[in-house]
Amino acid sequence: MPALLEAKGLHAAYGETKVLHGIDFTVEEGGVTALLGANGAGKTTTLRAICGMTRTQGSLTFAGQSILGRSTEDIVRLGVAHVPDGRGTFMELTVEENMRLGAYVRKDKAAVEADFERMFGYFPRLKERFRQQAGTLSGGEQQMLAISRALLLRPRLLLLDEPSFGLAPLIVKEIFGIMRRIRDEEKVSILLVEQNASLALAFAEDAYLLETGRIVVSGKAHEISKDESIRRSYLGY
């Protein structure tokens, strides 16, 4: 079966600043792929490149069609949901409105209501805060909201940019616990970006390691996590 997402020789740049120098990677249908690397390696840029948010070159195929150079709105409508760096909360809007926006492009409004209930099943706290202004949520709650907003698209591919960032260990544990349920219960493939390598490798099947815009290691997550030398030289644990 061909991969759901396939990048070949992918370059990305902000204006004159080149950040990705021709990287290859795939995300398998139904799988979880982790993208690891130090701060500034280009992980966020990779996710932005997939969504058409940066200048890109090379080849980028999603579900059999090229998405290189297409607008972010079009790529999202193909079923790519992005939980962005910084969570992307609509601070001035309510939790409910944030969630409704997640389902904005969908036409099956009755199913959306059912999906709201499913999200409350994963994240009961969103139900308690449903009418509240989203800017008043804690960081962990905003992360839960961002994941719900993304899932409400009913995406085929979920891009997660450092869902653990800035959160207390207990909250990280809670969120990754729920993400395991999401991985098993939703029909969605995941590309997970993390600085916390041990966390990500325990969650993913495949992994890539990015260093200053180039992929330096790729393979099965459990093998990478067992490889002493990779761990020492790249992952720092």
Binding site: C51, M53, E73, P84, T89, F90, L101, G102, V105, L153
Partner: peptide, 11 residues
């Protein structure tokens, strides 16, 4: 309010 996040939900 937030054009970047809006694009990411398909607006």
């Amino acid at each position: 309010l937030n054009p970047v996040s809006s694009r990411l939900v398909g607006v």
